[in-house]
Every structure is written in C-alpha cells, then in structure tokens.
Amino acid sequence: MTTTTPVEEDGVKRRDFLYIATGGIGAVGTAMAIWPFVDQMNPSADVLALSSTEVDLGAIEVGSEITAVWQGKPVFIRHRTADEIKAANSVDLETLPDPQADTDRAVKPEWLIMVGVCTHLGCVPLKESGDFNGWFCPCHGSHYDTSGRIRKGPAPLNLAVPPYSFIDDKTVKIG
C-alpha cells in the first residue's frame, strides 16, 4: 500500500476538486433558484402601474386640509394660512433634528403636501396639534411643526414629501 501513496495523493486532489466544484456549482444553482421565490413578494406589475393619484384642490379652504390616498398611504394636503407659512419659515434650521427649509418642502408655499405617516413607526399623526401647532403622533409622542418637520419626540425624520406636480391651479398629481 505504501508504494502507491503518490498516485493516491494525486487521486485525492482530483477528487477534492471534483467535490468542491460540484458543491460550489450546486450552491450557486440553489441560490439562483431561490430568487424567484423571494422576488414574488415584491410589488407585482399591476401594483407598480398604479403609482399616481390626481387630487382636486378647489374645495380646500385656507386653514383646512384633506387626506388623499396614494399608494395605499394617507397623503396630507393642507392649504396653509399665512401664519403657518410664516411660522414654518422663521425657524433656525440648525436647531432641527432633520434640517430642511420650508421652501424645499412645498412647491407652492400655501400648499403643503406630505405623506401622513410618522417616520418613527408608521402611525398617522393628528393635525393641528402638538407643541408646534403642526402634527402630533399619538403613538409615541412625536411633534411636527407647520412644515411637517420633526421637532420633538422619537421620530428621526420629517414627514416625507411625495413627488408631485401641479397640473393646473386646482389639480395636483401625486406620484
């Protein structure tokens, strides 16, 4: 037996290579086969196609707001008063947890449009409440100002602004 050792060693090497190649290719194949099973849970083609909503602004009085639905989420559309716009613009950005100028959050200052989902854990904040007369999330006590920016509480970010454009003076297209 000992005389054949070199040959066997060579055989062992070739065999190891075969095992590693088979195992490796098998693992790659399995990984690729898993992807369709993961991807099927991503939004389907019909869901992706429904990604914009048009809202009529004509009936919203100054100082009131409506909640539209976009991609299954509430969108706050607020016709802000001059006081609210002024309050939103008179804040020192340095003091904000998530610094953002009001002009970057509203295309037209009188219309504040944002996704009504608290950036903490996804509850819907209440309007015209909280320490900053903006929105207040009752779940865990996050306070947002009249520009929808986070001022106090556990939420890390300002209320998100969805992509939108004004089709005319009375109609906005969200998404």
């Binding site: 075969l18 088979t22 098998g26």
Partner: peptide, 16 residues
C-alpha cells in the same frame, strides 16, 4: 443547460 452540467457532475461524483 445548468441542470445538464450539474447532473453530469453528480454522475462523476457518484462514480468516484
């Protein structure tokens, strides 16, 4: 095509 390669390898390993 992948399965053909894979099956060929399995056959070689089986023989070994």
């Amino acid at each position: 095509l992948f399965l053909l390669v894979m099956t060929g390898l399995f056959f070689a390993v089986k023989k070994k």
